[in-house]
Amino acid sequence: MKWFRKTVSALRPLPAGSFTVDRNGHLLASTLPSDYPVSLVRELGLHVLTTFREARTAGLSVTDLVVRYQGLKIAARELRGGAIIFVFPQTPFNSAS
């Protein structure tokens, strides 16, 4: 007899792919899995745009951004006010890159 029902929480897979946003942060195109939350993708796009914009204000003329987490690498390039953003899950085999 089972006293407790076993619940298995669904683990959200790490995103892999790329997407582009316009200067207002609107999602233009994406190769990310369609079930990945769009709100998170948009949020990431806005953060990237804000980082580029604030860097310019701080006197840094930069066009590329790389953010490394333990489990994910984000690489972005500014494109005419918008940006193209790549996300790569990091594993022990590729985390050195």
Binding site: H47, V62, T63
Partner: peptide
């Protein structure tokens, strides 16, 4: 953002241009 994406601790950030 890392917490929201659940991708572990932030290691580093790089911004660059040719300059």
């Amino acid at each position: 953002m890392g917490e929201r994406l659940a991708v572990g601790p932030l290691q580093d950030i790089e911004v660059s241009s040719w300059q």
